[in-house]
Nucleic acid binder design. Sequence first.
DNA 1: AACCTACCCAACCGCCTTCCT
DNA 2: GAGGAAGGCGGTTGGGTAGGT
Length: 302
Amino acid sequence: MSEIKKGPWKEEEDQVLIKHVKKYGPRDWSSIRSKGLLQRTGKSCRLRWVNKLRPNLKNGVKFSAEEERTVIELQAQFGNKWARIATYLPGRTDNDVKNFWSSRQKRLAKILRNSVPQPSKPQKSISKEAPALPKVPSLEEPKLNSSMEERPLVVSQHCSSSYTNNFDTINMVPLPELVNSTSLPFDQELPPLEFTPNEKRICIWPQFPLLFPHIPVQTNFGQPLEHQELPMKLEDNDLLDYFGQLSASDIGGNVQVPLAPSCSSGQDQRELEYPLTPDSFIDDFPLDMFDYIDPLQSPSGW
DNA sequence: AACCTACCCAACCGCCTTCCT
DNA sequence: GAGGAAGGCGGTTGGGTAGGT
C-alpha cells in the first residue's frame, strides 16, 4: 500500500477530487485512495471537498456583520455545534465558523488579560468598585446539567424605549441566583431565533465572567474561574452600560422581565437617541462585547 | 531591514456515530 | 448483536502573512 500523503493540497489533487465528485457524487471518499487516484485518506478528501472545493463557498470572504451576529446568536443557542451553526450560514463551513469563533475568543481573552488589575490588588477592592451589587444570600454553586455547560444562559427581556446607562447605577445579576431562582427551561428547546417586537435578550456568556465578578463561573473548560482570577475593568462603560438596573429579585421566578420600571432613577436615566429595537440591541451588545476595542458606531449611523 | 506579535486559515487528530457485513 | 469501516464533528496545531516596533 502506498504511503498516505498529508499536508497542503496541490491543484492537480484538487482536480482529481473534483472529477471524482462530478462522477460519483460527494461520497465514497475512501474509494479515491483504493482506486489509486490520490494518496489521501477518505477523511482528508472529504474535508478538502467540504471546506474548499464545494461550490458556492465564500472562500476568502470575511464574515459580514450579519454573519457575525448570526454566529454569536447561534452559538449562544446551540453551543459549539459548528456544523449546525454553519447550516444557517450559506457558503460557510463548520471550519469557517469554528475558526471565526476561535479567533474572536482569543481576542476576547486578550482583552480580558489586558484588563487584569495588579496581582497584589486585594479581591475586596473589586466589590468596592462595584457598589451596586445586590445583596444576595450565600449561594450554592449552580448545578449545571450538560446542556447548561454547553450553552450560556440566555435571558429574554421585554425592553422599553429608555434605559439606564450610567455605570454607577448598574446592578449585576448573580448567575447562581438566576439559575437557582428561576425555572429556566434548560432541558427544553430554547426559543427560536426570531425576536418578537419589543423584546431583547441579554446573553450571559460563560466565557465572559466579567459580568459576574463575585461568583465562581463555570467555563467551557470545565474549570470554575475563581473570582480572584477574574479580570476586572469596571470602567469599561461600553461593556456594561448595556445593562439596565436589574437586580436578582427582578429576575426571580420569571424569565420575562419588564425592564423599564426598575430603570427609572431620576437623573441617571437618559433617553436613548435612537429607537431601541431588538435588532439595534443585538447589533450593539454581543458583537461589540467581543469587539469593543473598535470604534463604536455613532447613533447617527444606525 | 529585521524582528516580533497577532491573526487567519488549512489541515490533521481523536472521538463518536452510523452504516454495512 | 458484534465488529469493523466509513463518515461526521469538534478541538487543536502549524504555516503564512500583515502590521507594528
